[in-house]
Design a protein around this nucleic acid. Sequence first.
DNA 1: AAGACAGACAACCGCAACTGC
DNA 2: GGCAGTTGCGGTTGTCTGTCT
Length: 281
Amino acid sequence: MGRAPCCSKVGLHRGPWTPREDALLTKYIQTHGEGQWRSLPKRAGLLRCGKSCRLRWMNYLRPDIKRGNITPEEDDLIVRMHSLLGNRWSLIAGRLPGRTDNEIKNYWNTHLSKKLRNQGTDPKTHDKLTEAPEKKKGKKKNKQKNENNKGSEKTLVYLPKPIRVKALSSCIPRTDSTLTLNSNSATASTSEEKVQSPEAEVKEVNMVWGVGDDADNGGIEIFFGEDHDLVNNTASYEECYSDVHTDDHGTLEKLYEEYLQLLNVEEKPDELDSFAQSLLV
DNA sequence: AAGACAGACAACCGCAACTGC
DNA sequence: GGCAGTTGCGGTTGTCTGTCT
């Protein structure tokens, strides 16, 4: 609180990135790896704030990013994930390999919310709209954005604060994981990102995630980690190093089903119910 | 052809969570 | 436990581009 925004320094570039800036950033990260965003611009010779560099890398320059052409299957998965998770774009993006939270957020705001509205579904709650689909507004654009919430009666929907997934590994690529589940736990395996350094040994690590007791807080926690012993002993997982092909409708379908399973695990109904409620309310 | 408008999406901002001291 | 620095997330805004008049 009260801290000055990191981009407030005068003399720093803002706005669209130039190819040269992209090249500098990419080259630097390929050599030195991600992180240290605050000092990165200076070391990379960029007149940008660290935040801007991080955003540019995460959303556009990372080698594993897939741009454009959201498939109908992905489209469908996004809608259904949104109905489960709400505006947790990073969680949704994490289940769509190669897609970023920003891209999904934009896609939602520009395409999907309209599409749902036209289908008579409230894009926020995924309930059926009682009124006819909103007519196309006339010509006000940006300025009108803020007005939208003023005039109309707002339905208050309680959404719990987003829970931050505990990262037990310092560098887990969010967008390149395949989930495999059994009935007791959710596990995932991931091929570790290779951007740290061209010289860096490419290592492949099994990543696991699951739901467990959070004894400290008396609740449930979701965790990610590098090893299966992070999951309870009964956990099993399949080794899966292959890339995820999101064109594969079956894979996306499976991901969604697995989420549903996660929310319906029978072993700890009370805790999981509350967990599920926290996501769904 | 030119201006107005709307759509799309890249980028920014503020804040919360995390981390290390 | 408190504080300050860093990172990540979601909401919002700015700008570019295509389409319409």
